[in-house]
């Protein structure tokens, strides 16, 4: 990990001023805030953090969190205590595609451990690490609600289910060719339920 990873330059103070939602993202944020009564804009925090993570390189830097705090008019600590509680927010830089392989009971019963080992070998990284080219980060996840289509992994908004080694090959090759950052907020999701 660290500075060699693509798109993960740390945002220093000078860059902080540049940290801003795109017009489109700002529109999304405003729509989210409008769902709550006046004065209850803090409720928008979790969904807005997802937008911020997608906008600012797949992770939430301290500067990105401070920016979200200013947009929602709440204290920075209120953002950090939430971002650090939930597993979907990355507080450190990650690869463009974060592969999250479910490892709980039903997935384990169907070979999730072998899928993890296969990906580790294929990418030459261990769980928690990022490939040198900054393309993939491998993670394990707790039950993702895909037990009937186990084993499975999530990447951004997409659920990849009934995994086999062959399927993993095809999925990873596809992401690599595509070369895009994958986010939970993506509209072009794939799912196989």
């Amino acid at each position: 990990m660290g500075s060699q990873v693509h798109g993960t330059q740390s945002f220093d103070k000078a860059k902080r001023a540049e940290l801003k939602f795109s017009e489109e993202a700002m529109k999304t944020v405003e729509t989210i805030i409008s769902r709550y009564p006046a004065g209850k804009q803090k409720s928008a925090l979790l969904p807005v953090l997802h937008v911020a993570q997608a906008e600012f390189g797949g992770w939430l830097s301290p500067e990105a969190m401070d920016y979200v705090a200013s947009v929602l008019n709440i204290k920075p600590i209120e953002v950090f205590e939430v971002a650090s509680f939930y597993t979907m927010y990355n507080l450190k830089p990650v690869g463009k595609c974060v592969l999250e392989v479910c490892q709980t009971s039903s997935c384990w019963l169907n070979g999730a451990e072998d899928i993890v080992k296969y990906i580790e070998k294929k990418l030459g990284i261990k769980v928690g690490e990022t490939t040198r080219d900054g393309m993939f980060t491998l993670k394990v996840a707790e039950c993702l609600g895909s037990c009937g289509t186990a084993p499975m992994m999530q990447c951004g908004a997409s659920y990849h289910e009934n995994l086999t080694y062959e399927k993993v090959d095809a999925i990873l090759d596809n992401y690599k060719t595509e070369g895009k950052q994958r986010n939970y907020t993506d509209l072009d999701y794939k799912n196989t339920l």
Binding site: R35, K40, K42, S43, A44, L45, L46, P47, L49, H50, L72, I74, E78, E81, V82, A83, F85, Y86, T87, M88, Y89, E142, C143, Y184
Partner: peptide, 27 residues
């Protein structure tokens, strides 16, 4: 009627943790 997405936490299935989360707090 609106939808709110969570941030990844089993505990938010507990109804009062869910409400905390819906208020933009830790679950």
């Amino acid at each position: 009627l609106s939808v709110q997405v969570g941030g990844g936490a089993y505990i938010c299935g507990e109804e009062t943790a869910l409400l905390e989360s819906l208020e933009g707090k830790r679950g």
